[in-house]
Simulated assay, not measured.
Amino acid sequence: MSSPPGPPPDPDDDEWRRRERDTEPIPRDRPDDGPAFGTGPAYSDGPSYAESAGFGREEPRRPWADDPEGYRQPEFSEDELAGLRVDASGMPLGTRRVLPLEDEPTPLVARYLFPTERYRGEWKRHWIHLATPLLVGILATFVLGYLAGFLAGQNVGALTTVAVILWFAVIGWVAWRVADWYYDRFILTNKRVMVVNGIITRQVAMMPLLRVTDMKYEQSPLGRTLNYGTFVLESAGQEQALREVKHLPNPNELYLRVVEEMYEPQAVEARLGKEADEAKADDGA
């Protein structure tokens, strides 16, 4: 049986008051007591020891975790994931990052290839290569046309004829530069890179891929806007006929094409074989 409750404590009892004072909870905040130990900030200022040691610190939000405040798992489009998917042979199913391989060289280029090398493609220089001749032709047309009309009004037939002949000469030079641009080709095979140019006097410069020690391409702000660049090829620090090729179109795709041919020729052959099989299947269907 429990003992009956005793009489209530006497508030005037010194022993009771001492026990009550000793069992009072220690306050956590003491804003009115001044700084702790006389030098540091008050207890309420700054992080606690546990917080400064890293205990109880709130974990940073992870952007990939679902959160009601707007943090969601990132989403990827099908186009972004397509480049990561491969077929059974390991070939990517998505859009290629390089230009499609050419099947056959043009008659202009075929004469410079020997039978055992495989043709990969040929490219004309970007149309910016013709910017100077075209601007000269347009300017000459306006200036000489105005001059010929003015001289004709002054009844100076000889000078008018000279102005017309000069205009024909400028237009002939522009036509020559356009034809030279058309016959100027950058060529890639599985063994070398070549540049063929010239109309009457043909010039053929080449560099074996095995001798290329460094390759880069440069793009000015205008080149980035119009998508052309300059290729620079280095070969063991030696002087070579083919070092700098200006105004090549699609420089990034062309750079990937050359690098792939240099370092992953088996992948190129595998892609060519796959494309040939698909073409035969389509023809059979």
Rank of each mutant, 00 (worst) to 15 (best):
V143Y: 04
P8I: 03
Y119E: 00
F114T: 14
P11F: 02
V170G: 00
Y112D: 08
L226S: 05
K191I: 11
D32S: 06
A285H: 15
Q154V: 00
E58T: 10
R125V: 05
D184P: 05
G284Y: 09
M215R: 04
S235R: 05
V245Y: 00
R120C: 11
D29G: 00
R61G: 07
M91P: 02
V162Q: 11
I165W: 08
G56M: 06
V162W: 11
R125E: 08
V98F: 12
P105H: 03
A175G: 14
D283S: 09
G157D: 13
E102I: 04
G273C: 09
L209D: 04
P74R: 00
E104Q: 06
A276I: 06
V259F: 14
L209R: 08
A110Q: 12
E122R: 13
K280G: 06
Y263S: 05
N227C: 05
D103C: 02
V162L: 14
R224Q: 04
D282H: 09
A179D: 14
L93M: 12
D22T: 04
D45V: 15
D10H: 03
T106E: 14
V98R: 14
E269R: 13
I138Q: 05
R211W: 00
R19T: 07
D87A: 00
M215S: 11
L147V: 15
V259N: 10
L130A: 07
V156T: 12
A279M: 09
A53H: 04
T189Q: 09
R177I: 01
L93P: 12
V259P: 08
A205F: 11
V259G: 12
K246R: 14
W181R: 10
G34T: 02
F55I: 13
